[in-house]
Amino acid sequence: MSPVRRVAAYAVLVALAAFLLAPFVWMGLVSLHPSRSPIPDLATIIPRQPAWDNYATVLVGTDLPVARFALNSLVVTSLVVGGQLLVCSLAAFAFARLDWRGRETVFALFLLSLMIAGPVTQIPVFLMLRAVGALDTLLALVAPGVGSAFGVFLLRQAFLAVPRELDEAARIDGASHWTVYARVVLPLSGSALATLGAFAFIATWTDFFWPLLATSSLENRTLEVGLSVFKDSYGGTDWPLQMAAAVIVLAPLLLVFLALQRYFVRGVTLGSGK
């Protein structure tokens, strides 16, 4: 590439990065303006004295239990990620490694459900959970998330890539299916498990619709729904506080993403046939 084109390419790359990140930078800066101050002008966007206490105010200083929202999100997300990895990897092992009648039919059911997810299931799942009295509980937030057809599919592909000779060697030593699953296949599929875990984390942490529907009492809300409640309470009146709340929701997401970013590429390209 000629030097001129190289410079032009970097100029476009940097401009695009600035365009994508500008709103986040603005968010961080506004969150440090004194609480209740008017929306800063572009000229006065950098706060003279960073108001770090906005963060303490958001976490413990309002009549909304924000720390409780954060705890709920942490518990729900951990349980969903752990549950999804276990449930999906068990099923994926049966599809990739075991020889059984009905395997193709059951796998087709999983693939079919990839196509029919969406708003159709929300009303019935709500009604079912209400019928068993599980609405507004931890169960209602966790149970719908512990399985994933996408996860079964992704892990099956990964398990198929583990050499079968390793299973057979273990079996000659008398290993059970469980031992092959737990001691041979899982340890060799770390990056696929990380990919699914990363996607499950982001999807659960940022899920809005389902926790909005499934919880009704304030202390059972997750951060994402709590942020919406916060916005409705302080929206238009206190931009710095609102933006501090948004930073509190975003920060863990960005940390997880930066730590696991290479696994996102793998998950997104899966299924495009590449």
């Binding site: 276990l86 449930v87 999906c88 068990l90 099923a91 092992f93 049966a94 599809f95 075991l98 020889d99 059984w100 009648r101 395997r103 059951v106 059911l109 999983f110 459900s113 029919i116 997810a117 159709v120 299931t121 929300q122 009303i123 019935p124 799942v125 079912m128 149970a143 719908p144 512990v146 399985g147 057809a149 079964v152 299916h177 699953y181």
Partner: peptide, 25 residues
């Protein structure tokens, strides 16, 4: 044939699929 073991491995995911995707339809 690993029929019995396979159904045990797939059962949690299958129960989840039926409860939260197929039955709701």
């Amino acid at each position: 044939r690993d029929d019995r073991a396979a159904w045990a491995f797939v059962a949690p995911a299958l129960v989840h699929l039926v409860l939260f995707a197929l039955a709701p339809i």
